[in-house]
Design a protein around this nucleic acid. Structure first.
Ligand SMILES: [Mn+2]
Ligand SMILES: [Mn+2]
Ligand SMILES: [Zn+2]
Ligand SMILES: [Zn+2]
Lengths: 141, 141
DNA sequence: TTTATCTTTGCGAATGATTATCATTTTCGT
DNA sequence: ACGAAAATGATAATCATTCGCAAAGATAAA
């Protein structure tokens, strides 16, 4: 798998915007993250990125993830059971429902909850920097 | 450190209620959990329980935690950075604020948020089993 | 209380995820 | 193209947690 000129340029400028050096490994990984519709773990990202850039190593996957998380381009999740999972940050914030039967992760957003969180933090003398809301559920029917 | 007769009896009956066998290691660990005012990790629990019952091992701490979590007597948290942390389940549910500067964990509860979570899950065709809400904050001033 | 059965324990090895080391390669401003 | 600084792959190391097993302990029946 090779990524086209247009995709490549977009990814490269995201990396530049994030203020990090551009390497083919980083381009490959961010491309994979950008196109992932799920929340893969490091090994899965390594597999997928290897298709695009076979020279990438698992160590570099982890290193690049740390770099991109630091730059707020990627989010790390630690859902119950299993290791860390990652996703590219999207324009709009969202939280997650985890299907306890299938492991599937669904996204949602509640402006009301976001607002109340903010208020609770303030009431207790805190500034809310970020948060994590995970709903562990089972499908009805 | 030795625990008194009264404490011991209470702990023993909690274990019986939880439907698990009573061993001195389990009594010691549950006693420590019951009296902890913080959210310690496994090694810290091992240290504290060792004071009460020096024969306990780290493996047994982990095993007992699993048993107690299965019995819903203990909750496991995985706050950002660092390993799992534990606490004895309390009568009333609560969520957590994590102070990003000090690492301190503060508890809070919002009936409104709880209710909205329930509604969101239902709207999406899910039954909410449990959830995790973590607010990462910095103290104001 | 003695016994029989099944469970739990301590120890230490094994595992799985993530990070560190280091020699080599690559990036990027000049 | 040059050189300083940063990033990389391979592999070793670390950290948290789990496993395997023989010995010790808990429970319930006799
Ligand atoms: Mn998501
Ligand atoms: Mn708590
Ligand atoms: Zn949110
Ligand atoms: Zn809650």
């Amino acid at each position: 798998m090779k990524l086209n000129q247009k995709d490549e340029l977009l990814i490269v400028s995201s990396l530049r915007d994030a203020g990090v050096r551009v390497t083919k490994q980083r381009v490959a990984l961010l491309y994979i993250l950008d196109n992932a519709k799920d929340h893969p773990d490091a090994i899965e990202l390594y597999k997928r990125a290897s298709e695009v850039e076979p020279t990438i190593s698992l160590a570099t996957v982890y290193r690049t993830l740390s770099v991109l998380i630091e730059a707020k381009v990627v989010h790390r999740h630690s859902f119950e059971g299993g290791g860390a999972r990652f996703e590219k940050a999207k324009r709009l914030h969202h939280d997650h429902i985890v299907d306890l039967n299938t492991g599937e992760v669904i996204e949602f957003n509640s402006e009301i909850i976001e607002k109340i969180q903010f208020e609770i933090a303030a009431e207790m003398g805190y500034e809310l920097i970020h948060h994590k809301l995970e709903l562990y559920c089972r499908k009805i029917n």
